[in-house]
Amino acid sequence: MIRIHVLEGKAFVWNCADVQRIREEHRIVGTLVGALARKPRQNVRLGLPLQLLPEEARLLLEKDVATLIKNPSSKPFADDAEQDPLFLEAVAAYQEEQEESYMEQLRLAAEQRKALLGSLAERIAQGRAKKQQQKGEGGEPLSKPADPESSFVFPRESMMVQLPTERTWLGQEEVDWHLPSKEWPYGGQPEHEMRYCVFQSLWEQGYYITSGSKFGGDFLVYPGDPMRFHAHYIALCVTRDAPLSLCDIISVGRLGTSVKKTVLLCSVDQDGTVVYTSLQWSGMQ
């Protein structure tokens, strides 16, 4: 099950494998919104979490491949946790784990250094011999290489520590996404229902869909993975009987033309099917 975590009414995926599955198996894209672990101070490439549109999350939920989870309302430990034996146990476990990690890292680092010195020893010896030759015969006797074990230091500050991305506690409460709630207010909302109908219909035709706000629409529709393909359509969800001013038609049409995309007017029929009308500038000026 893919875990979708709710925070302030927004959907997030924190697990990397889940993110990969969502994209590769379910054609759901989302938006990375966190700092990239490798290089956090830039905005070109972002990292976890992956934020999902309400429609993206709902599709995964309806397909029953994901669960919607909220932050446990009950804290893992009460405020007076200092007396809680479970808490004390957890702290002790963490500290012990850190200690073990340090000892293991110390051992590994020493081993690595030994191996490194070993591989270098030959070269060092050769270098020394060469030097000696250049200096002429005689000179000092070959000094013994320092004992790797004795000179090796691995101070505690050098220990590598992980700042985990995902939650380390498995406290979770499922949210019922069918009904609107404080955590997930979308179910049954006319706007969301319309957008979801359109999203689902396009998705079922094999398209990749992302948020369309960049181009003033509801969705951007891609013929393939957005990593490798440009969007073809800017989808605009409109209530079928809502009057559209021609000025709006012109402005979205104009925008679509300038970015070489077709504007799609999408409406949901009374029987739930989605009708599409493509809007393109005629090329007549």
């Binding site: 073809h232 359509y233 038609i249 012109i250 049409g253 070489k260 995309k261 077709t262 799609l264 009708v275 599409y276 009308t277 493509s278 809007l279 393109q280 500038w281 005629s282 007549m284």
Partner: peptide, 13 residues
């Protein structure tokens, strides 16, 4: 100004 409306999805050029 002339805008073309077509039923369905029309792939852009």
């Amino acid at each position: 100004v002339y805008y073309k409306l077509t039923d369905g999805l029309v792939t852009p050029d």
